[in-house]
Amino acid sequence: MDAIVKKFEDIAVAATQPEVERPSQAEVEAAVRTLLLWIGENPQREGLLETPERVAKAYTEMFSGYGRDPADELGRTFEEVAGFDDLVIEKDITFHSHCEHHMVPIIGKAHIGYLPDGKVVGLSKLARVVDIFAQRLQTQEAMTAQIAGAIQDVLNPLGVAVIIEAEHMCMAMRGIRKQGATTITSTFTGAFRDSPEEQVRFMTLLRAGGRG
């Protein structure tokens, strides 16, 4: 378990962004105009006059994860759970992220399970943790590990299971251009990592009732 905790500490450090001086709103809008010129557009035509401002506003929303800490969402837990100590699963958590290589969308679903150790967290908090990591430039592999690591570090459950299924627009829109290809990644900690039976139980419960 110590090795697992150390692994996720390393991931957390790697995901922490150093303080940098952010460009001004005017500089961001100027950069968008430069990109419009580079692709052969005219930033002065009517339909594009407000595009730089709109892009800056959209980026503020789509990449808001950099200014949020998953520990803030997971910090409030509940211990009065009538003796419940079995597997908790939240599946089909939809998200939109962006590939850090091409800055195009990643669209998918996350499935999370954990084995409580005396306390549980509100289900909406798990979805918020997904959003925090999704609203950053990402690789799917890193995002999967970051979600599991945050839950493990803050809740300290007996184990965490995270599976992500996603379509990458960098494959659908450019390069190989294969629409509909899905990438699946998983991370298991604690009891899920050490016990194949717990992994099987998690997967079986995920399949129960089908997926939305």
Rank of each mutant, 00 (worst) to 15 (best):
S64L: 04
T34M: 14
F95P: 03
I89Y: 01
P52D: 01
E80Q: 08
P43I: 13
L48C: 06
A56G: 13
G75D: 10
M62T: 06
I39K: 02
G67E: 03
E27K: 04
T94R: 14
R45C: 07
P18L: 02
I107W: 03
M62F: 14
R33D: 11
Q44C: 06
R33Q: 13
E29L: 08
P23R: 00
L36R: 02
Y59S: 05
G47H: 06
M62C: 07
E41Q: 05
V55G: 04
M103F: 15
L74D: 03
F63N: 02
F78R: 01
I93T: 04
R54A: 05
A71V: 01
A71D: 01
T77G: 08
K109R: 15
H111N: 09
E19Y: 10
R33E: 14
L74P: 10
H111F: 08
A58G: 08
M62A: 14
Y66S: 10
A110R: 03
E90M: 07
G83F: 10
I107H: 06
Q17G: 12
E61H: 13
V32Q: 10
P43E: 07
M62W: 12
T51A: 09
P70I: 02
G83R: 10
G83L: 08
E100Y: 12
V88D: 00
D86G: 07
A56S: 15
H96T: 14
H102N: 04
H96K: 14
K57N: 12
A26N: 06
E46K: 09
T51N: 09
Q44H: 11
V32K: 04
L48G: 05
L48D: 06
L35G: 09
K57W: 01
K109T: 10
G40V: 09
E100G: 02
